[in-house]
Write a protein that binds this DNA or RNA. Structure first.
Length: 233
DNA sequence: TCATTAAATTGTT
DNA sequence: AACAATTTAATGA
């Protein structure tokens, strides 16, 4: 089983955006990126911190705590191995708008801001990747604003998983993500029991399959558009 | 290689 | 939250 990338370099070469870079561009990325370890429960970065890096997840799992301007709306977004985040604040030359917390022991990669901006100016495919990712996030937020019944745990679980797989699935990586149901509970703000219940519902609908220690996504679109059903059909 | 044990994860109450 | 059942990982013969 090839579950986790072993080295920083291997991971960088396996990401979606890296595959579109030229050799010289890739060489600089590999030279500039550094690897860091964050223990379970630790902060990858905190709200209000100065922005210095674009951060990617090599191994482990983190959650982003996003606060809406109104202050109360706390939305959990998980980032799985292969996902990168922080570009929004980097582009706006702003401080971070959220806390990022490791749900388990996690290894992260940090790309210095200068490298990020250099890529942005020199690589069109990289820019295109960022546009796609920003658009995905925007769609998430709109969805959460539009439906005020986002209280449905089933829906939240489905959306959380779909969001993680957007970044993870494309390059033909495994559709199996090693994440325990307890961690899914953390991500969607529910108890483990409730997460289990939601997952079983989603499995019944053929959107995913439950494995020991992991989830296998069968229908990403279905997950993304899943809505809780009020009645029996 | 196979059997036993321990640890982690999951399903249920 | 607590319990039982199941799966994986680890250990030793």
């Amino acid at each position: 089983m090839t579950t986790t990338p072993q080295t920083l370099l291997e991971h960088l070469r396996g990401t979606i955006w890296a595959r579109t870079l030229t050799a010289p561009e890739m060489a600089r990325v590999e030279a500039d990126c550094t690897e860091h370890f964050v223990p379970k429960g630790g902060f990858v970065c905190r709200k209000g911190e100065a922005l210095v890096c674009w951060i990617g997840i090599i191994d482990g799992l983190v959650k982003m705590n996003n606060f809406s301007p109104s202050g109360k709306n706390v939305t959990f977004t998980g980032v799985a191995p292969g996902g990168w985040f922080g570009e929004g604040s980097l582009l706006k030359d702003d401080t971070r708008k959220y806390d990022v917390i490791a749900l388990r022991d996690t290894r992260i990669a940090r790309m210095p801001r200068a490298t990020f901006e250099w890529l942005l100016e020199n690589s069109l495919p990289f820019t295109r990747f960022l546009l796609m990712q920003l658009n995905e996030r925007l769609g998430q937020f709109i969805g959460q604003i539009e439906y005020d019944r986002m209280l449905d745990v089933d829906t939240r679980v489905a959306r959380s998983l779909a969001a993680m797989f957007n970044a993870h699935l494309y390059p033909g990586i495994d559709e199996l993500v090693p994440i325990s149901q307890e961690e899914i509970g953390y991500l969607s703000g529910a108890s483990r029991q409730r997460a289990n219940q939601a997952l079983q519902l989603l499995e019944k609908q053929g959107l995913l399959r439950l494995d020991y220690g992991g989830i296998r996504v069968l229908d990403l679109e279905g997950l993304r558009h899943f809505e809780a059903q009020s009645g029996v059909s």
